[in-house]
Each structure stands twice: as structure tokens, then as C-alpha cells.
């Protein structure tokens, strides 16, 4: 676990990884978007509005994957006191919040022409909105804790991230447990089944992969920026004490 604990060692890995995630991510996303907009046929029932699928699903996945990342960072901080865990949490949270908001927005835009409504309080939509509020609370909590300074660095935020993860299975199973306006899941990863016809499915795989790589690139860049700022601060502090 502590192999990448050393910031220098982490940076040695993070620097090349930023490029390796950024450029393939852009390429895959570009191919997926072109495929989803211009190449695939429209859906038999929903027509062209079904193309929103190719960006709505990745944003939902990133919103949930982002919180999984926060929870994992929280556990590794509480249990192993991993020094990069707070840093990772700080880097992930606003990005996850943005993609959750984009999921809600694209879903709303999609709901109008298909369901006939921008918003309904069904189980799936409500639990996703709760995830967005959880992100906002996490960001507020983490920054408040950081301002208070040393001592239990980010412990509250870590506990909050772990507790909030209970919302993830609720989002996932909301369409199974309760009857909802939102349709059931199309892709069953465990069984490897999909109710999306192969002719309509392939751009989705490209955009999910592309968005995921770009998400990683953004988080890596944010972590590097954060580390550099900390380094600068410490350097300036030391120079000030040396000068005094």
C-alpha cells in the first residue's frame, strides 16, 4: 500500500500516466461521439433522442465511480493512514460532483422528449440527486477540515465518504426494488448481457472508456497541482525561517 506513498514516487508514475490517459481518452471519446451522433441508426422507439444514451450513461458511471474512489480513499486513510488519500479525495470530489450534475442535466434533457417531463421524483432520479448533494457536503466538509489545519487531517471527510457509499447500491438497485419511471438497467456486467442491440451499443463502449480515461487524467492533473502547491508552500516557509 505504501509503495506509492512517497510523493516523489507517486509523481514518477503520475507524470507519464497523465499523458497516457489524456490522449487515448480524447481519441476514444471523439470516436464514440462521432459514432453515436452520425453513424448509428436511431432507436426504433425513441428515434434520435436515444443518442443521449452515449453521454448520459458515462456521466452516471463517473458520478458513482467517483464516490467509490472517495470511499476507497477514505478507507485507506482511516486504516492505513495513507498520506495520499486526503489528496486523492480532494482531487476527485469536485470532478465527481460535476459529472453527477451532468448526469442529472442530460437525463432531464432526455426525459423531456421521451417521458414527457423534465423531472419526476422517482427512486432513480431522487437517489442520484442525493448523490450530488453528498458530493457538495463532502467538498464543504473536506475544505473546512483542511482550514482547521493539522490533527486528524480529513478524518471526518473520510468517514463521511465511507458512510455515503451506502447510496451507491441504492442508486443501482432503485429500478429493481421500486417501480420507477426510469427504465431498468440495459447492461448486466455480471451476466454479460445487454438489451442494447450491438448496432447501437459500440459507441457507448467508446464513450464510457473515453470519459473514464479523461476523468483519470483530470484527477491526476489536480493531484499533481495540489502536490506542487504544497511543495511550494513548504519551500517558501523554510526559506522564510532561514532568512529570519
Amino acid at each position: 500500500m505504501h509503495r506509492f506513498a512517497n510523493p516523489a514516487r507517486f509523481l514518477k508514475l503520475a507524470r507519464p500516466l497523465t499523458g497516457w490517459t489524456l490522449w487515448p481518452g480524447l481519441l476514444l471519446l471523439g470516436a464514440g461521439v462521432i459514432g453515436g451522433l452520425f453513424v448509428t441508426p436511431p432507436d426504433y422507439l425513441q428515434g434520435d433522442s436515444a443518442r443521449i444514451l452515449y453521454i448520459h450513461v458515462p456521466t452516471a458511471w463517473l458520478g458513482m465511480a467517483g464516490w467509490s474512489g472517495l470511499a476507497i480513499a477514505g478507507i485507506s486513510q482511516l486504516v492505513w493512514r495513507h498520506p495520499l488519500a486526503t489528496l486523492a479525495g480532494r482531487a476527485i470530489a469536485p470532478v465527481g460532483a460535476l459529472y453527477t450534475a451532468l448526469c442529472l442535466a442530460t437525463g432531464s434533457i432526455w426525459g423531456r422528449p421521451t417521458w414527457g417531463t423534465w423531472w419526476e421524483w422517482d427512486g432513480r432520479l431522487t437517489s442520484m440527486l442525493i448523490l450530488f448533494f453528498l458530493y457538495l457536503a463532502y467538498v464543504a466538509l473536506a475544505s473546512a477540515e483542511r482550514e482547521r489545519g493539522a490533527g486528524g487531517e480529513g478524518k471526518m471527510a473520510a468517514i463521511f465518504a465511507i458512510a455515503g457509499a451506502i447510496n451507491l447500491p441504492i442508486i443501482h438497485y432503485s429500478v429493481v426494488w421500486w417501480n420507477t419511471l426510469h427504465q431498468g438497467q440495459s447492461i448486466d456486467l455480471v451476466r454479460g448481457e445487454s438489451t442494447i442491440d450491438p448496432a447501437l451499443l459500440w459507441p457507448l463502449l467508446l464513450t464510457v472508456l473515453g470519459f473514464t480515461l479523461l476523468f483519470c487524467a483530470i484527477v491526476l492533473m489536480r493531484m499533481r497541482a495540489d502536490l506542487a502547491r504544497t511543495r511550494l508552500e513548504m519551500r517558501l516557509k523554510r526559506q522564510a525561517t532561514e532568512a529570519a
Binding site: 448509428t40 432507436d43 426504433y44 422507439l45 417521458w115 440495459s186 442494447i196 442491440d197 451499443l201
Partner: peptide, 16 residues
């Protein structure tokens, strides 16, 4: 008020 609910299947029109 009437809302349309669609299922989780997506396919090209000619397959319908």
C-alpha cells in the same frame, strides 16, 4: 397527465 415509460431495450428501427 400522461407520461411515457420506455423499457431498457434499444435497437435499430428495421429490427423492431
Amino acid at each position: 397527465r400522461i407520461l411515457a415509460k420506455h423499457d431498457e431495450r434499444y435497437m435499430p428501427p428495421e429490427l423492431d
